[in-house]
């Protein structure tokens, strides 16, 4: 079992909803990322998604697109992100999920990626634009190396597709709360909860929900039903606004995880 599997066992035992934090690795520079990750961990993050920047991120809104541009300009590539992961592992056991698009992974080579990611202390991988139909080789290579493969399910997915997504996923399933790209939203979409219920009926895997979640009340609303909540664009926006503000980032993460701690106590 990877650190991801162990995390969800712990969360279950503690009856707590987990906080998954996304950041674009290498934004503003590769050197800055380990400290930003440490701040997120101190602020209460349970799992880190390390975004590997891609030049043409079709599933991302402007905040993450711009972060990716900055990271690429700062020389970030797959090898650099694995170096960053190894650096984080020197001081932390927080589960790490590589989060990117297919082409950078394809170019690096699945076999080489599985081996190097494992060596760097990566626990899982999510490739946004790999449908389960195209995933056989990728999944078998990653699983062989002991890396979890996380897939996304969406409100538009039929039950048949939800089953496939669960079948191809290990560690957890990533539920997309609403139709759309990444980015902050005013309220939790009304498609979010029905998707959790549908997926829950089909799998025992832990469920994490993301897309459009950026405030403590939204986190609290999702946490009632989900095993983990993903916050991405809000974190990336904060880093973009104040790249050196490690303490501000930690404070922001703490504010967002606050409802989760309270829920566990009550």
């Amino acid at each position: 079992m990877t650190r991801i599997g162990k995390l969800f066992e712990t969360l279950k035992a503690e009856k707590r909803c987990g906080m998954i934090a996304y950041l674009t690795a290498g934004d503003p520079t590769p050197d800055a990322t380990p400290e930003l990750v440490a701040a997120l961990e101190r602020g209460g993050a349970d799992l880190i998604e390390l975004g590997v920047p891609f030049s043409d991120p079709v599933a991302d809104g402007p905040v993450i697109q711009l972060a990716g541009d900055r990271a690429i300009r700062a020389g970030t590539n797959m090898a650099k992100v694995l170096e960053i992961a190894a650096k984080i592992r020197e001081t932390s056991q927080i589960p790490l999920l590589l989060f990117t698009y297919l082409n950078p992974a394809l170019r690096y080579g699945f076999e080489r990626l599985a081996k190097d990611a494992r060596a760097a202390g990566i626990d899982g991988c999510l490739l946004t634009d790999v449908s389960v139909e195209e995933a056989d080789n990728y999944v078998s290579v990653m699983r062989e190396a002991g890396i979890d493969t996380v897939f996304m399910a969406a409100p538009t997915s039929t039950d048949h597709r939800l089953k496939l997504v669960a079948e191809y996923s290990s560690g957890f399933v990533y539920l997309v709360s609403r139709a759309g790209i990444t980015g902050e939203q005013a309220s939790v979409s009304d498609t979010a909860l029905p998707l959790i219920e549908r997926m829950r009926a089909l799998t025992d895997l832990p469920l994490a929900m993301g897309f459009g979640i950026s405030t403590a009340p939204q986190v609290a609303a999702i946490a009632e039903f989900s095993d983990a909540v993903v916050v991405g664009s809000a974190i990336v926006r904060q880093i973009g606004k104040d790249p050196a503000g490690v303490e501000a980032l930690e404070a922001m993460m703490r504010e967002l995880t606050d409802p989760l701690q309270k829920a566990a106590i009550s």
Binding site: L102, V130, S131, E133, E134, T156
Partner: peptide
């Protein structure tokens, strides 16, 4: 060829 898109587009493509 194939179909390499985020899951949200899979059902509309079908």
């Amino acid at each position: 060829g194939g179909r390499y898109v985020p899951e949200i587009l899979m059902s509309p493509l079908e």
